[in-house]
Simulated assay, not measured.
Amino acid sequence: MRVGLHALGIGDGARPEVIRAVAMAAEVHGFARLWCGEHVVLVDAPASRYPYSLDGRIAVPADADWLDPMLALSFAAAVTSRIELATGILLLPEHNPIMVAKQAATLDVLSAGRFSLGVGVGWSAEEFAALGVPFAGRGRRTEEYLAAMRTLWSEDPASFTGEFTRFDAIRVNPKPVRGGRLPVVIGGNSDAALRRAVMLADGWYGFNVPAADVPARISVLADECARHGRALDELTVAVALSDGTPEHVPALGAAGVTELVVVSAAPPTPRAAATWVTDLARTWIPRAQ
């Protein structure tokens, strides 16, 4: 089992000197992938329920620095050469799919093929309203945007006609480095997210999942694979635990997890950040291997 690190882009983890220290130390000490999440907008008192905590509230303060994940990962790519990079996750229906296709392919080129695009449908109605995007239908919008983006990545010129986006004989370059395809991961813990991962993507990212719930979630994923003619081992299965300890690692591997993602907040200085990454690696990676 691989071990990833979800620690960049928020609070102290938004400081360039800390990003540099975390990324370089994570590569040296054997982390497989750096994950970076997204919110364009936060509000002080949201009515929308956050789906990844028991109390329905996001732990990040509304006034915290939160970097654009594509830009943050581009910075991390520039100071590393081997470690993989992934958005975990980018809220795809909030964006123009042509722009996201361009940005994702650009990051893939700049990182020499180390980038995976993790996407989800979003949960904050307030965020969608601020951006002028309908909250209703965001699942259908996500699915269509992915189809349009794959067309842009693989065809030149490219044409597409859908409910939410259309273009005719356009050229969007560069292309991803792996033969016109870029790995896509679907984030979210719901049955709908698992179904989209099987139908549309190369992997699933479960976030803040209780360790006891992981086998049941992967069972749903396996059922969806059987329903849609896919094998479970075709998918990467990345999971960040809400209550994880190293003692959970053997059971996670037995359940089918291929990447355990450690989620933590980086300390404020480069030296402390490097030591912190070293300690995390010593705690988690030997158990996973």
Rank of each mutant, 00 (worst) to 15 (best):
A112R: 14
A273V: 02
P210F: 13
R171C: 12
V22D: 12
R217D: 12
G132Y: 07
A212Q: 13
F164I: 00
Y145W: 05
G132E: 03
P16V: 11
V184W: 09
L194P: 08
A101C: 04
T236R: 13
R140P: 05
T80W: 10
A112H: 15
E84V: 00
A72Q: 05
S111R: 08
A211G: 11
Y145I: 04
D202T: 10
R2F: 14
E94V: 07
L92T: 10
A197W: 03
V239G: 13
W276G: 05
D279R: 13
L260S: 05
R166C: 04
P286V: 01
L90H: 11
A130D: 01
E144I: 08
L54M: 01
I89D: 06
V249M: 09
T283A: 11
V60N: 01
W276Q: 13
V3W: 03
V79W: 06
E224D: 12
T106W: 05
H228A: 13
R138G: 12
R178H: 15
T87K: 06
R282V: 07
F31C: 14
S264F: 00
A47E: 05
M24D: 04
G206Y: 07
G30M: 14
R57H: 08
N208K: 11
V262L: 09
P51Q: 03
D168G: 04
W284Y: 01
R287E: 13
A64Q: 06
G11D: 11
T161A: 15
T165Q: 06
A47G: 13
S242D: 08
V263P: 00
L235E: 03
T236P: 04
D12C: 15
A64K: 05
E126K: 02
Q289T: 08
T258H: 07
P174N: 09
K102V: 02
W204P: 10
G206H: 07
